[in-house]
Amino acid sequence: MITREPRYQLPARGPAGHLGRHMLALVGNSGRAVIMLGEAIWCLRYVFTRRSRQAIVTQMYVGGIKSLGVITVVAAFTGMILALQTGLEMRRFGQEVYIGAAVMVSMLREMGPFMTGLILAASVGAAIAAQMGTMTVSEEIAALEVMSINPVRFLVMPRLVALAVMTPLLSFYSCILGVIGGGVVGLTQLGVPWGAYVDNATRFVENKDLYVGMLKAFLFGILIVTIACHQGFSATQGAVGVGNATRRTVIVCFLSILICGYIVTRVFYV
């Protein structure tokens, strides 16, 4: 059950009481989010139904294709900034030809998934939280449950599948654009030939870098959907609650992406 009766608690006493109340809320919310995620994964058995397919494609379009513009700009300029900053420093040692390797490694391992995750969290995650929150405070979720329609299967699972698929692809797309942007800067600003740039870019990376980065993006997509849906379903108190849910979604998504990115890096590269 997504919807529940509100629980009335006595006010907390003192800082320790507030801290304890927040810790309990954090643990409780995390548990509810994980349970909701598990339920969504369980609902994956309906992923190939016609209605689910249609909903998934719609979410892929809304969450992925509509984010292409901002991802394109952010990724290209991220690669250009990386190439310029790295190249200017490496030029002091006459090693600017290696900016291809620097940009490629940075984009594939970290910057591509990270920038994609942040963009999707700020745009798609906030939109999901706002939509879910509005449905929650307007008791549409409760109505779905009254009609025996599982809100997780109907709302969460298509978004989960859509972002789980689209985030790695968008991450790879941003990596390519970042590398191209870095190559353009290397060619025009640093005098690095395109061939040498590409040669160095592909020499120092492996498939492991590519797929670990895509794994990160996959996890980021799952995190964004889970956090956004949970925050939306937890919205209370009308429009203000929706706003709070949206704000918390962005903050928690950013923190989760950072922590998850570090853990994945720690697991695969140390």
């Binding site: 692809l169 790879f172 592909t202 590519l210």
Partner: peptide
Amino acid sequence: VGVFMLVVLLALAYFTIVL
């Protein structure tokens, strides 16, 4: 969505071969 996924997956396959 289909075209985007197809293009990106082809690029991913090419990239995988190159790397």
